[in-house]
Design a protein around this nucleic acid. Structure first.
Length: 508
DNA sequence: TTCCGACAGTGGGGTCGCAAT
DNA sequence: ATTGCGACCCCACTATCGGAA
């Protein structure tokens, strides 16, 4: 199949906002693709690359060669060149990568270049990724979407699942099983503003667990072989030796466990997320990193214990199996209750210990990948500040032509100015975007045709955030984590905004 | 007819490793 | 030694479609 066929399908998918139409376009293409190119087609049209990463990003794609007029590139040839790009390493590899990229793009027409460039940058913007592709695979293969979804959870890679469905139908999908050593797509949580709201959504009795601010891990053990994967299914076994040792020492030799690793201080309080994250990412001298920053692990779910797959069993049963296989000090603290007051007390205690919040779990829900259903709901405390807008950046995509990303500052009583604490684009409705674009242009100081528009610091905006972290990027040495807009405060003037001292007092 | 679950899009801060400067 | 880039860790929120109620 030719790349131009995919580029045209992608354009058609992007052109119609109706999901059913997108699914029809995608399914029609899948019906035409041959078995040897099915994985590539499914990957590209769901925004993925079979190589997963190339070492090529936005900067490497800035200037493309002149396009060709005739479309001749096949999926296999493109895939082949991308594989060669990916495998370049060592001195001279950037030049080699650039040359191969030139060769590839010089063989493409304009629409193919556009499609591939967006795909590599991870900005397909056709309104269809995994979720829509699952439906398209179901339609093209005749298998129920639920079977495709389940196989995807077990295999973790839609192109492989989709190709199997196209060639072997529902039987091929049912052949995907939980395999020790191969990561499963993890179950994710929705969020709620309060424990009471979460309990109501779950419907009465629920399990509340500590939410630790670390890195999600899935640990597999078969005999003496242990592997560890992240939420995105990256293999980090070599980076977390203490976790490997812990799992190897358990009395059960056949296991798949779900949990969180976190760096704790000697007093048991958590290190800032940056410390845990940096430790888990360290690959060069793990032995030394482990001495200075040891990791602790807390498990909260068991997907397999001693030969039994537990995915379809209710949370309560899985947790009982977890408790059978793992000693209590390695299990995330948990309270089962239907009582709102007791739940809130638990939440307060967890936050008082310096942790992130709680996860409220329905005792009946099976293990289901993604955010599907409301089996798990996280609750975190929310802080707010009144800050001043210092500048805004022009948006992209559906925010093109709108001033979108806000630069936020706290008042500096000593200097009389404002200290930038970070940016946010979250929480803005279309109406608010339109309003602030107009307002910022009135307040503009300096040029408005660049990337960033500076504005007179007159607007106060209420910002919610999860915490204040150390920053080497901003002048105050601190930045807000997960900042989002709650509302503008027309009733407040900038001299009533919160100060840097207030913010500093919130830093961990 | 209205409601709500699922999905895609739009970006945020921080860290590490690697190659180039 | 420093810088730029890519990949990945954590992630919140709104708009929209279409099936459920």
């Amino acid at each position: 199949m030719l790349l131009i066929d995919l580029a045209r399908t992608s354009a058609a998918v992007a052109a119609d906002s109706a999901r059913l139409v997108k699914i029809r376009h995608l399914a029609e293409l899948l019906a035409r693709v041959g078995p040897d190119e099915a994985e590539i087609a499914i990957a590209y049209l769901s925004g993925e690359l079979p190589q997963r990463q190339l070492g090529v990003g936005f900067a490497s794609l800035r200037d493309l060669p002149e396009p060709r007029l005739a479309a001749t590139a096949t999926l296999s040839r493109v895939d082949d060149l991308l594989s060669r790009i990916r495998t370049q390493s060592g001195p001279g590899s950037q030049a080699a990568r650039k040359a191969l990229l030139e060769e590839l793009f010089a063989s493409l027409t304009r629409p193919e270049q556009t499609f591939l460039s967006r795909l590599i940058r991870g900005e397909l913007r056709q309104g269809a990724l995994d979720g829509v592709m699952i439906e398209a695979v179901a339609k093209a293969s005749g298998a129920p979407a639920a079977e495709v979804r389940r196989a995807l959870m077990l295999r973790g890679w839609l192109p492989a699942v989709g190709a199997a469905a196209l060639s072997g139908g529902v039987e091929a999908l049912r052949a995907f099983r939980l395999e020790v050593g191969r990561p499963v797509s993890p179950m994710l949580a929705q969020s709620a503003p309060s424990v009471a709201a979460a309990l109501e959504r779950v419907g009465g009795r629920a399990a509340l667990e500590w939410k630790l601010d670390g890195v999600r891990v899935q640990a597999h053990r078969s005999g003496e072989t242990v592997s560890v994967f992240t939420r995105a299914l990256e293999d980090i076994t070599a980076q977390v030796p203490e976790l490997v040792e812990v799992v190897r020492a358990l009395p059960v030799a056949d296991l798949v466990l779900d949990g969180e690793v976190i760096a704790l201080r000697p007093d048991g309080r958590p290190e800032p997320f940056q410390i845990t994250s940096g430790r888990v990412a360290s690959r060069t001298d793990v032995a030394r990193a482990r001495l200075s920053t040891p990791l602790s692990v807390f498990f909260f779910d068991a997907l397999r214990v001693d030969g039994a797959d537990l995915l379809d069993l209710p949370d309560e049963t899985r947790h009982a199996e977890l408790a059978r296989a793992v000693p209590p000090e390695l299990i995330t603290p948990r309270l089962v209750t239907g009582d709102v007051a007791r739940g809130e007390e638990f939440f307060k205690e967890v936050v008082g210990r310096g942790h992130e919040g709680v996860v409220v779990k329905s005792p009946d829900s099976p293990y289901a990948a993604g955010r599907r259903g409301a089996g798990w709901i996280k609750v975190k405390p929310r802080h707010t500040l009144d800050l001043v807008v210092l500048a805004a950046e022009w948006g992209s995509g559906r925010r093109e032509g709108r001033l979108s990303n806000l630069h936020l500052g706290a008042r500096d009583p000593s200097g009389g100015g404002f200290v930038m604490l970070g940016k946010t684009f979250k929480g803005l409705t279309d109406e608010l975007l339109a309003w602030q674009t107009e307002r910022f242009l009135e307040l503009a100081e300096g040029p408005v045709d660049g990337w960033t528009v500076r504005v007179r610091p007159e607007l106060v905006v209420e910002i919610a955030f999860d915490g204040v972290q150390r920053s080497g990027r901003y002048p105050g040495g601190m930045a807000l984590r997960f900042a989002r807009v709650i509302r503008y405060r027309p009733d407040k003037t900038p001299d009533q905004a919160d100060t840097v001292e207030t913010v500093r007092s919130l830093m961990i």
